[in-house]
Write a protein that binds this DNA or RNA. Structure first.
Length: 735
DNA sequence: CGGCAATGTGTTTTT
DNA sequence: CACATTGCCG
């Protein structure tokens, strides 16, 4: 057993946070200041030095990955395993509560969790039922409104009460419908998990009291990303004077769009009066240059308490900013640069490329592939969201909960077994006229009223399910899954030799392995298969791709959001352009722009030694080339910290810069860009190009100076000789 | 009923 | 450009 040596392992600020006594404390921990360390040491200290029962400590993190890291490190510190402390996400915690006491808030045991696709389907059905067109009421928008209502702890009824205006009143109707269907299916959505947990604790004060007594110390990580429901949950569990340690950094709040409320951290003392507030400002991760640049950027935000990070790591290398021609050029320079760096002592796994949107990863991936460099793409194609996997999951969900009619709908004719829309419609009618559910009708009626063909198809489906239900009584989850794959014909669906089929087969096999691994880790003998099935389905709903990601193979490519909490010796943030970062959809509200700035801040502060930034003049967006302006955030980085590299392509290859670029994004009236086939050379205003002028005739470009409105072009006209023209006025046509 | 083709559409981040 | 949805035909 190792000694807990705080003095030599922690700095004074960290020590006071770790050894904080009773009452709430907020630890404002800047990027790289060792907040994980504080949490793990605090848990270890409470157990070791204070003799606190580990089971009475609850530590909530934002991702499962963070939780398992903390578990590992804490167990290491204590030299014992496994710890009885709850260490997991808000959602996992809430789900645990609901699995035990859910009946008190209206969810029957065995309820399932609807994913985003299910949610959208419910919204669409609600729209249809209310006679609303998807065009004027985009399902995603409706769903966002419902989600945000739930985050604010409004149920359908109270939402309807306060909904004003045309749009919101319709949302309220869809919301009511949506919630009704959830209940009918005995299902909850993601936001329900939190909202119902809060409701449970509000309505059952005895339970709340018991929980508060049991949880003697509550620790919450990434507090800046908590939403209203999560704050209320924390308040319920800790009590106003409770032993809460909240750790967070308002400069790293990047989940506003998901309901996160920065006020939770900015006005912490309002929720927890008398709280001690500490700051961790000593950074152990990055160089001075990186810290200063990132600090300058984020200092432009208004919504912050403000802190200044420092390090004694020394200045380090300057930040390199590359002005790329287009996204291929960007990828090629960036990855070339990484290749150069790998000749030093750096490994591929020491490097990460961070982007704002998943779409940006394409060009990067192509470049990495073509150079044969090892890389891992994080999170773009989620395993459990692949169609073939969702099919199996739908069967499992339905077996566990026959009220899950979304799952039923999915599997009814998958694989195709002759149950088309017409058959489905008829059977639904029959079920409805008998006043029973669709499945009850299928399993308990003789289907005599249906045409023979439909009847046979439905009976086939019924028999498959009934047989599988028998299998699911047996204890082995893995066996059930393979039976599902075999008996339903799902696996045979992909028996062809083509690549896609093979990939899907592999995925299904991987799924079976995942089930086996899960069963082994969760003691397969102890629980009945039904219980195991619930646990597995919960697990699937709660894990993300990032959770299983390890810095193992190659360069990591991921979104800025996924990068939170990680660090790499070399970090590149690509696509620093207006419209991407800050993102187009976040350009209106000051709060949204500040969040985009924080996103860049998060990205920059992931870097330990080397930070690369790129900004492209041109980018393919939805298949069309678009001219891009540099991100305004770039000008917030002091010049002296930047090494600027200009794409060589721009200097001599007008293909990339493009004529639009020279005209500041739009061509003057009367001008057009000739198609490449028309000129033989891809269009662009550059030296040597021939042009035609309305009155001066044809000529050749000698010089191009200035930009945008000030763009001046010197042309040697065949008839009129040398003339300097302001491109804004002169009607020049490239020929 | 099922598969395919053509058409049209929209583009963020995810526990 | 990629995806989803729609419409058509076997």
């Amino acid at each position: 057993m190792t000694e807990l040596d705080l003095e030599s392992e922690l700095n004074p600020e960290q020590i006071s946070a770790v050894t904080h006594g009773e009452g709430p404390q907020l630890v404002l921990a800047g990027a790289g200041t060792g907040k994980t360390r504080v949490i793990t040491y605090r848990v270890a200290w409470l157990v070791r030095e204070r003799g606190i029962d580990p089971a009475s400590i609850v530590a909530v993190t934002f991702t499962n990955k963070a939780a398992s890291e903390m578990r590992e490190r804490t167990e290491q510190l204590l030299g014992q395993a496994p710890l009885a402390t709850f260490l997991g996400t808000f959602h996992r915690f809430s789900l645990g509560l609901l699995r035990r006491y859910g009946e008190r808030v209206g969810v029957a045991p065995g309820f399932v969790i609807f994913d985003r696709d299910d949610q959208l389907k419910l919204v669409k059905r609600g729209l249809e039922a209310e006679g609303l067109a998807e065009q004027s009421f985009p399902p995603r928008k409706i769903l966002a409104a419902i989600g945000s209502a739930k985050n604010r702890l409004l149920d359908a009824a109270s939402y309807a009460e306060q909904a004003y205006g045309f749009f919101n009143e319709r949302v309220a109707k869809v919301f009511r419908h949506y919630q009704g269907e959830l209940r009918q299916a005995n299902a909850v959505d993601f936001d329900d998990m939190l909202a119902l947990a809060v409701r449970l604790l509000r309505e059952d004060s005895t339970l709340a009291e018991r929980m508060r007594e049991q949880i003697r110390y509550l620790l919450v990580d990434e507090f800046q990303d908590t939403n209203h429901a999560q704050l209320k949950l924390v308040e319920k569990l800790a009590g106003p004077a409770g032993n809460l340690t909240a750790v967070g950094d308002e400069d790293q709040g990047i989940y506003r769009w998901r309901g996160a409320d920065l006020d939770n951290i900015l006005r912490f003392e309002k929720s927890f009066p008398g709280a001690t507030v500490r700051k961790l400002e000593r950074n152990y991760r990055s160089t001075e240059t990186i810290l200063e640049a990132a600090g300058e950027v984020v200092s432009h935000n208004r919504d912050r308490r403000g802190k200044s990070l420092w390090t004694d790591a020394g200045a380090g290398a300057p930040i390199t900013l590359y002005w790329a021609g287009d996204e291929q050029d960007e990828a090629s320079w960036l990855i070339g640069r990484l290749q150069e760096l790998s000749r030093d002592e750096l490994q591929w796994s020491d490097m990460a490329i961070l982007v704002r949107t998943n779409a940006q990863t394409r060009a990067l991936e192509e470049e990495l592939m073509s150079r044969g460099m090892p890389y891992t793409l994080v999170g773009s194609v989620r395993f459990y969201e692949r169609a073939e996997i969702k099919d199996v999951l739908a069967y499992l969900r339905f077996l566990r909960n026959p009220h899950d009619n979304l799952a039923l709908e999915r599997i009814l004719n998958q694989p195709p077994r002759g149950i088309g829309p017409a058959t489905k419609e008829m059977a639904e009618q029959e079920a409805a006229s008998s006043g029973i559910s669709f499945w009850d009708y299928l399993s308990h009626s003789d289907l005599g009223n249906l045409p023979a063909r439909s009847r046979c198809a439905l009976e086939g489906f019924r028999d498959v399910i009934l047989e599988l239900q028998r299998v699911s009584e047996e204890p082995s989850l893995a066996k059930l899954v393979s039976r599902v794959l075999r008996d339903t014909g799902l696996f045979d669906l992909y028996s062809q030799a083509d690549e896609e089929s093979a990939a899907r087969r592999e995925n299904l096999q991987e799924f079976v392995s995942a089930v086996e691994e899960f069963s082994e880790r969760h003691g397969k003998d102890e629980v009945a298969s039904g219980e195991a099935l619930i646990r597995f389905l919960d697990h699937v709903s709660l894990v993300s791709d990032l959770d299983s990601w390890q810095v193992e193979r190659g360069v990591s490519v991921m979104t800025l959001h996924s990068a939170k909490g990680l660090e790499f010796p070399v970090v590149a943030v690509a696509g620093l352009e207006e419209g991407l970062l800050p993102h187009f959809n976040a350009r209106e509200l000051a709060e949204d722009i500040e969040e985009e700035r924080r996103l860049l801040y998060v990205g920059m502060t992931r870097a330990k030694q080397i930070l690369l930034l790129t900004s492209s003049r041109r980018r393919r967006v939805a298949g069309r080339y678009q001219n891009q302006e540099p991100s305004p955030f770039l000008s917030e980085i002091p010049d002296r910290l930047l090494d600027v590299v200009e794409s060589p392509i721009r200097l001599h290859d007008p293909r990339v810069a493009g004529v639009e670029r020279f005209f500041g994004g739009s061509l003057p009236p009367g001008h057009r860009v000739l198609k490449d086939e028309e000129t033989g050379v891809p269009g662009g205003v550059s030296k040597g190009r021939r042009v035609r002028h309305g009155t001066l005739g044809t000529g050749v470009i000698l010089e191009v100076e200035g930009e945008g409105e000030d763009l001046r072009i010197t042309v040697f006209f065949d008839r009129a000789g040398k003339r300097k023209l302001l491109a804004r006025f002169a009607k020049l046509e490239l020929i």
